[in-house]
Simulated assay, not measured.
Amino acid sequence: MRIDTPGLATDLAILELEGTTITDQGTCLVIRTASNPRYYWGNFLLLERAPAASEIPSWLDRFEAEFPHAAHRAFAILEVDADHSGWKDYGCTVELDTALAAERLTAPPIPAMDVEIRPFRTGDDWEQSVLLLSSDDEDGNPEARLAFEVLRARAERQQAESGQGKWFGAFVDGQLVARTGIVVLGPRARYRVVMTHPDFRRRGLAGAVVHAAGEWALAQPGVEQVVIVADTDGPAITLYRSLGLREAGSHITVERRPG
């Protein structure tokens, strides 16, 4: 399966770094992260073409067969210009995700004031990152979210300590209030989750950590481009554009969360 969008291409490359298996089944790719079954976007099916509405039940059955213990359903679809509305009849949300890329970055439009922007250095930094990310619990299951974030932090820390990537935080009086990471994948470097504590939003902190991570990556030997992915209709994409990132491809995500 040919994957042209840098968003999905770098997604899969990072997943493979973390031990995820990617199996080509002909009609789809099966992406499986056995070590973290709650990782929705580490356990999904990647389809080349958009199913017709009449085909959606068979794809949901296929997902269940591949992941019999999963409470979620997740699909990525390469074909963007098609009717994807049929998924909503099965309780799924459909989003158009846009990959943005840049060979150089511009300074954030809002300077971050009274904050320390720096790489993660200590175990406490990683523990604070776990707590920050797990506070955004959309499923109403805080224990499961915390367990998931512990596993994610373990994988991210291994990548940072191996030199494959680096994670940056915004700290106010020692408290981590915003974070992101970036992983080097040959000529591309891919951003990881960007998160700002709700009490510290609209202060330029997300822009500051994204800029710092990107500048670090672009200074690494052989890196030509940084890549990030955003919901096309979400607020973050405006920030990324203001830093000099431009659209470089898109794909569809289909998700049904537990409950």
Rank of each mutant, 00 (worst) to 15 (best):
L15D: 01
E16Y: 02
T20Q: 01
T21V: 12
T21E: 07
T23E: 03
G26I: 06
T27R: 13
T27G: 15
C28S: 07
V30L: 12
V30D: 01
T33D: 15
A34S: 14
S35V: 06
S35H: 13
N36G: 10
Y39Q: 09
Y40S: 10
G42V: 00
N43M: 02
L45S: 01
L45Y: 08
L46F: 06
E48S: 11
E48Y: 03
P51A: 06
P51G: 07
A53G: 11
S54K: 12
E55A: 15
E55C: 05
I56M: 11
P57A: 04
P57Y: 03
W59S: 04
L60P: 08
D61R: 15
D61N: 12
R62I: 06
R62Q: 11
R62C: 10
R62T: 14
F63T: 10
A65L: 11
A65C: 07
E66S: 09
E66F: 04
F67V: 10
P68A: 03
P68H: 02
H69P: 01
H69F: 13
A70K: 03
A71H: 13
R73F: 10
R73Y: 10
A74K: 02
F75T: 12
F75G: 00
L78N: 07
L78A: 10
V80R: 08
D81A: 11
A82K: 02
D83L: 05
S85A: 13
Y90L: 05
Y90F: 15
Y90V: 01
G91M: 00
C92V: 12
C92H: 05
T93F: 04
V94W: 01
L96Q: 12
D97P: 04
A99C: 05
A101K: 07
E103V: 11
E103T: 14
E103R: 15
L105S: 05
A107H: 08
A107Y: 03
A107T: 14
P108I: 00
P109Q: 08
P109N: 07
P109A: 10
P109S: 10
I110P: 08
P111Y: 07
M113S: 15
D114C: 09
V115S: 01
E116L: 13
I117M: 06
I117G: 03
R118Q: 06
F120W: 08
T122E: 01
T122V: 06
D124E: 14
D124S: 14
W126V: 04
E127L: 15
E127M: 15
S129P: 05
S129I: 04
V130D: 00
L131C: 08
L131A: 14
L132Q: 04
L132P: 07
L132E: 02
S134N: 04
S135H: 09
D139R: 05
G140D: 05
G140A: 04
A144Q: 14
R145K: 14
L146A: 09
